[in-house]
Every structure is written in structure tokens, then in C-alpha cells.
Design a protein around this nucleic acid. Sequence first.
DNA 1: GGCAAAATTAACCATTTGGTTAAACTAATT
DNA 2: AATTAGTTTAACCAAATGGTTAATTTTGCC
Lengths: 201, 201
Amino acid sequence: MENNEKISTESKILAAAEQVFLRSGYDGSRMQEIADLAGINKALLHYYFRSKDALFEKIFEDKFSQFFPRLQEELNHATSFAEKVCLYAELHIGLLIKNPYLPHFVINTLQKNPDFAQKIPTEVLMQVLQTYYTDLEAQKVRELNPVQFMMSVMSMCVFPFLSKPLFCKAINLSDKDFELLMQARIEEVKRYIKVLLEPIG
Amino acid sequence: MENNEKISTESKILAAAEQVFLRSGYDGSRMQEIADLAGINKALLHYYFRSKDALFEKIFEDKFSQFFPRLQEELNHATSFAEKVCLYAELHIGLLIKNPYLPHFVINTLQKNPDFAQKIPTEVLMQVLQTYYTDLEAQKVRELNPVQFMMSVMSMCVFPFLSKPLFCKAINLSDKDFELLMQARIEEVKRYIKVLLEPIG
DNA sequence: GGCAAAATTAACCATTTGGTTAAACTAATT
DNA sequence: AATTAGTTTAACCAAATGGTTAATTTTGCC
């Protein structure tokens, strides 16, 4: 009944590095800290991954090679713009509830090194925007600025996770309260989307 | 006609420290970098402000001792909840256009050291929320969850500045384009607020 | 068992970095 | 001019940190 699977050193390093880098960012992370968390010698980090830079890059790329392709595929299940945006909100908030440090990690990295933006596949956004114009012609949506609109929806999904420390203090919420608020937020954002997109008349 | 005002060393340090800390955060900033930017010897930093910690704390506190009291006062000019929220959006986005690094600075600092949240006066938020309930009784607003609503409005105001590097790359915007988008965003957010709050009937 | 290759470690190194010290310079005071 | 207090600097220090090396242990293979 016991689990004797041996965990490879490489995956132990990756798990530890992910945890440390996501919490503390590049500058705030120490190689020693990662080694300790992985339960290995610091030199092994350099044996498997050449440098701190290389290890960081690996973690960064891994985090996006998983989610974005799946998001893109899932969004194909929705046909109209409104449906696509709703589904996007649901999937994105769902991901962030499981990975609450992700937004800060991305923002932080891109602020220091904007070149990393190229590692994030953002074509999905363009594709969703495209559906707006077809829907508009078919008069299935109210006329609005779709760029501003998408920016708003993304903001509503992501920002709460970034402002959690401040927000929880301001209105006195526990961690559990916050997670429940985020669960409820999925429906909240969807409701907003529907109100804002519904065709007039 | 020339300006011979001597700029005090202390204010030169503060200006330099603000610039460096806001761009790079605590971990990413070097005391030497601040000294260079201020055009002085590094030891002078410690002569005027004891340590990196002390200097950082000073900068952090200064940034909020200006804006929040003024915001609170300005918001008194608005009476209804809808007006207050609209004015808040206008003032906040206006501030951020002038201080685009501020959101990242705050988020970054609070992620690493949540205790700093106590240095940010958040009572304004509670006061605005209070107006919602009085307006609801007078049937001047649609019934909704005001916490989620405020979270959405704040998100729409702040998040674009955080995601600028990614967003500009995704839809291929220049810095100037982005600033124009943010200018237009004030009216955009106001429009959303009105649509979402307008009483039914 | 013996051996070579891979994995792992302890000890070390060079650089960076926040911080200190003692000396030098400046400006006001007498 | 001499004295003194405040300001500024060059040189230095200790700790932290990313990275390396050479030796040791483990593993797979004959």
C-alpha cells in the first residue's frame, strides 16, 4: 500500500525551484533556498541546470507550456464571443485559484525583463477578439470597444489575486474567505459580461 | 533667469531612491545605484538614512501620505455611490498615468512583506462601500454584491498598468498608444459603472 | 567482484553588496 | 585666523551569493 516511487532529482529540483521562484521572484530567490527545499546539495542545481538564469527560464517556460494550449483548445468549444469570454473567465479564475502566485510571478518577471513576454503565447487573445467582429456583424453583441472590454474582463479575473494582501486587510478577510470570494467571482464576472454585451432592444 | 536654487542632498537622495525603488523594487535595487543617480557617495546614504530598510520604508510611506488624503477629500464632493465610484476611477487612473510604476511597486512590496499593508490607508474603500447601502435603501442603485463590484472597478483601473508589457506585446501597441488607451479608459470605466449600477425599471 | 559512468557532496572561490570608519573638506562662529 | 560642528569621501569590512572543483558515493554493466 505504500508509495515507493522514487522521485527523480531533476523533478525535485523543478518542484522546489517553482515554489521558490513563484513566491519570491528572481531577485528574491536564493539558489541555496531551492537546494534546501529540494533536499540536495547546491552544486547539484548547477549540475542539472547550468545557472540560476537557466533554471529560472526553464520554470517560466514550463508554467505556460501547460495552460495556454489547453485554454486555446477549450475555447473552441464556445462559439459566440460572449460564450468565449465567459469560458475564458471561468478557466482563468479556476487556474488562479489553484496557482495564486502566478500573476505576481508573471508581472514581476515582465517588469524586470520585458523580453520574457515573447515566451507567453498571447495569440488566444487575438482569436477571441476576432469573434467579436463576426458577432457584431450578426448583431449578436452591443457595439463597444473590444480592446477595452477584453482588458476589463482580464483585469477582473487577475487583479484580485494580485491585490489580495491589501484587499484582505482593507475589508478584514481571512484566506478562506478570500478563496470563497474568488469562487463566487467566476459567476460575478460572467454576469458582468452578459450585462455589458447583451444587444440592445 | 537661471535657476540657482541649491537642491539639498537629502531631497536628491529621496528623488533617486524613489526612482530606483519604484522601478526595481526592494530586492532589485542597489544602494550604489541610488547613490550614483543622486550623484553622491554611497556612505552619504547611510549618513542621512540609516539603512536600506529605513530608506525604503521612507519612500513607501511618502508615496501614500500624498495621494490618499487628497482622494478621500475629493470623494466628498460626490454624493451618490455611482458618483463616488466614477470619481474614484477618474482620480485613480489619472494618478497612475502620472505614476505608472506605482501599482507594481505596491504589489511587489506587499507580496514580500504583507505588514506594509498597514501603512496604506484603506478606510476610503469602506466609506465608499457605506454609501452603497444608503443608496440601495433609497432604490437609487440596482441590487448587487458591492464588494465584488468595488473589486471589479479597482481591477479595471489598476490592472492595465500592471499588465502593460504583456498587453502591448500581445496587440502590438507603442508606449504612446498605451497612454492614449489609458486616457480613454477613464470614460470606459465610467460607462461600465453606469451600466452596471443603473436601477432597473 | 570489478569497473566505468553518472550522481552527489564538501570545500572553495570571486564578486557583489549593505554597511562602517577614519580622514578630509566646508561653512559658520568667535 | 582658529575652532568647531556638520558634510562628504575613499578605503575598507564582513556577510551573502552564484558558481566551480575535485573528491566521494552510487549505479548500471560486464
